[in-house]
Structures are given as structure tokens and as C-alpha cells.
């Protein structure tokens, strides 16, 4: 049974629909990411779960109980805000202790749990620091400790890492994942960083304009994107116009000079999507010319001008010779590496 369930949740601000028909069930201990561009309704959805906003429609249930009927102060969720929202007049320890105080945890136990929580996020010894005297990463950890110390049923994280620099963000991602694995708290992370979503989550909810585009494991959403939006949003992709010709035997899928036996299903004009790292240089396939060649350490990035429009190719730097700029090449790929959707018009 689903632990946390959102059932056709909707939110309108005036005439504007910000979240629409949002259904999701989250298993206990699962790590879910809401991924989508700015303004797509991620924060709004999270705030409805937290109770700071009331849904205009639908239901939110936690362990089968209606969550919207419970006051936000009584929901027992742990929340890390994008701005951290630490209490600046309290020390790190006082910040973390606040939730325990509200629960009337006895002083001794409180001190012990605060100490353990701060140690868990790597801040042992910072008990008496005030937030404004801590770095962004340290403040972020205090916020995390403050949310976790109350043993929340669900942990809600609203872009907690977006204020950190790239290196620190990566470290915190690893730490966050480890902490979540260790204590097994059901977690929902809001982010617009696809790498963050992919490296942290069990499942990703890709959103666009208040609607769910796809729910799936990171691999699923990356390799079998359900829509053009998902494939564009999750990493780079190449879209080529192709046609499925069912009059030929066997049926053929043709994109420029590349062709393969057509899979069952679609027919007529289609769009073919292939990830750049799945395209290789071969003797047959799409005619293309290398426009630029960029060396990026462990891989090469090629921007090509193909007969089906611009294309990006990524090749591992495995020591083999790579084509030079201006060289003519043929682009080829395995049919199982691409995804296809119907294309309007001919």
C-alpha cells in the first residue's frame, strides 16, 4: 500500500491553474524527486503536502489518513526550505532542539538527540554557532538536522542544494543520499537540476506547467522518455525527423540515409530521439559533417551538421583516433537505443 498518496491534487491561484491532476503514490522509505523547470508548480505541490497551501481539489493521504484535515503543525513532516529559514537568533543546537521542545521531549533526551543529529550531518562541535556565522553548506546541514531530529514521517526538501557551489553540492548530494539510506525516511526532493534528481532518487516525477509528464526510475525517464519534453529536459538529445514505410517488406524506418527495420506500432511520420552518447561513427548512416570538436577530458563532444539538421555526438575518450573538424562522417546507432513518437505533418 502506498505510504504517501496524492490523488488528483490540483491548485488554482485565481483563474491560473498551477498544479493540475497530480497523482502519485510514494512507498515507505522511497526517495522521490520532483523535477521540472522554474514555475512548473513543484514548490506549490510540496507546500500542499506540508499544509502551507490548501489544495483546490483532490486528496492527500498519509498511511491512508486524510492529511489535509490535519493542521500543518501537527503533520509531523520535516521540511528543509530553499532559503533554509533557520532561526537566526538561535544557535545551531537551539535551532535543532526547537522541534523537540515543541514535542515536550525531556531536556536530557533532547540534548542527546540534538548532539546526535548535528553529528550525523557532520556538524559536531558547531552547537553554539549562530546560523549567520556559518557557511551556506553548514547552514544547509543545520536545516537538515532540524528537520530530521523530529523523526519526520516524510522529509520534504525544496531545492536545498541550489545555493551551494558545484563541489559542495556534489558532496551534499552524496551525504544526503547516505543519510536517507541509513535512516530510511521517505523523502521528496524538489529540484530543477536533472543530475541531482537522477543521482539521488529512486523515482523521478518530471513536471511541466503543473502537470506530470512522466513518473519513473532515473533510468526509465532518461532512456525511455514519455514525451518530447522529458527527453529534452533530461540531458541532451537528438531529434531527427523520420518516416515509417509500411508498404515496403519488411517495413522500414528511414531517417535521412539511415534506415532500419521498423518496429511494430507507429506508422507514417515520426520523430526519432537518440542520446548523443549512443551515436557512433560508421560506414553507413546519416551523412554529417563535423562542425566543432570539443575535448572534455573523459569524452569528446562533436557538433555536427547532418542531413536531418544539427546533431550532437559524445564519444568516450578511449584512446582511438577521432574525426577532425570539417571531416565528413556517417552517424549510426542501434535501433534499440532510440525512442520514437508520432510526428504531426509529413
Amino acid at each position: 500500500m502506498a505510504y504517501l498518496e496524492l490523488d488528483r491534487v490540483a491548485k488554482q491561484f485565481g483563474a491560473q491553474t498551477v498544479v493540475d491532476d497530480f497523482s502519485l503514490s510514494v512507498g515507505k522509505g522511497e526517495f522521490i524527486s520532483f523535477l521540472g523547470p522554474s514555475g512548473c508548480g513543484k514548490t506549490t505541490t510540496l507546500q500542499m503536502i506540508a499544509g502551507f497551501l490548501d489544495p483546490s481539489g483532490g486528496a492527500i493521504r498519509l498511511e491512508g489518513k486524510d492529511l489535509t484535515a490535519i493542521h500543518p503543525a501537527k503533520r509531523g513532516l520535516g521540511i528543509v526550505f530553499q532559503s533554509y529559514a533557520l532561526f537566526p537568533h538561535m544557535t545551531a543546537a537551539e535551532n535543532v532542539a526547537f522541534g523537540l521542545e515543541m514535542r515536550n521531549v525531556p531536556r536530557n533526551e533532547r540534548a542527546e538527540r540534538v548532539r546526535a543529529a548535528l553529528a550525523m550531518v557532520g556538524l559536531a562541535g558547531f552547537e553554539d554557532r549562530h546560523p549567520r556565522r556559518m557557511s551556506g553548506g553548514q547552514q544547509q546541514r543545520v536545516a537538515l538536522a532540524r528537520a530530521l531530529v523530529i523523526k519526520p514521517s516524510v522529509l520534504l526538501l525544496d531545492e536545498p542544494l541550489s545555493n551551494l557551489d558545484a563541489k559542495l553540492r556534489e558532496e551534499m548530494q552524496i551525504e544526503l543520499r547516505q543519510i536517507q539510506r541509513t535512516i530510511g525516511t521517505t523523502t521528496i526532493l524538489v529540484t530543477h537540476d536533472q543530475n541531482e534528481a537522477m543521482s539521488l532518487s529512486d523515482r523521478i516525477v518530471v513536471m511541466s506547467q503543473g502537470k506530470i509528464e512522466q513518473i519513473g526510475t532515473p533510468q526509465e525517464t532518461y532512456e525511455r522518455p514519455a514525451s518530447a519534453f522529458v527527453s529534452q529536459f533530461l540531458g541532451k538529445t537528438n531529434d531527427f525527423a523520420g518516416t515509417i514505410d509500411r508498404t515496403a517488406t519488411p517495413a522500414q524506418l528511414v531517417a535521412g540515409s539511415w534506415s532500419a527495420p521498423a518496429p511494430a506500432g507507429l506508422s507514417g511520420p515520426v520523430t526519432v530521439s537518440i542520446r548523443p552518447e549512443r551515436i557512433g561513427f560508421g560506414d553507413a548512416g546519416l551523412h554529417a559533417k563535423i562542425v566543432t570538436r570539443i575535448f572534455q577530458g573523459n569524452h569528446w563532444l562533436f557538433q555536427c551538421d547532418s542531413e536531418c539538421g544539427p546533431a550532437i555526438v559524445i564519444r568516450q575518450n578511449d584512446g582511438t583516433a577521432q574525426p577532425a573538424e570539417g571531416e565528413s562522417v556517417r552517424l549510426t546507432w542501434h535501433p534499440q537505443d532510440m525512442s520514437m513518437r508520432a510526428r504531426a505533418g509529413a
Partner: peptide, 22 residues
């Protein structure tokens, strides 16, 4: 911080406590 009251509320503080303590 515009979210500071929400933060206190999520930790279980009532309106009076939020005003007095936060």
C-alpha cells in the same frame, strides 16, 4: 525570512509560540 513562520509551524509551534519565540 518569508518562510520562517512556516518553518516553525512545521516543527510543531502554535501561533502564540511562533510570535513569542520566533
Amino acid at each position: 525570512d518569508p518562510q520562517i513562520e512556516n518553518a516553525a509551524m512545521s516543527l510543531g509551534a502554535g501561533p502564540v509560540t511562533i510570535i513569542r519565540r520566533i
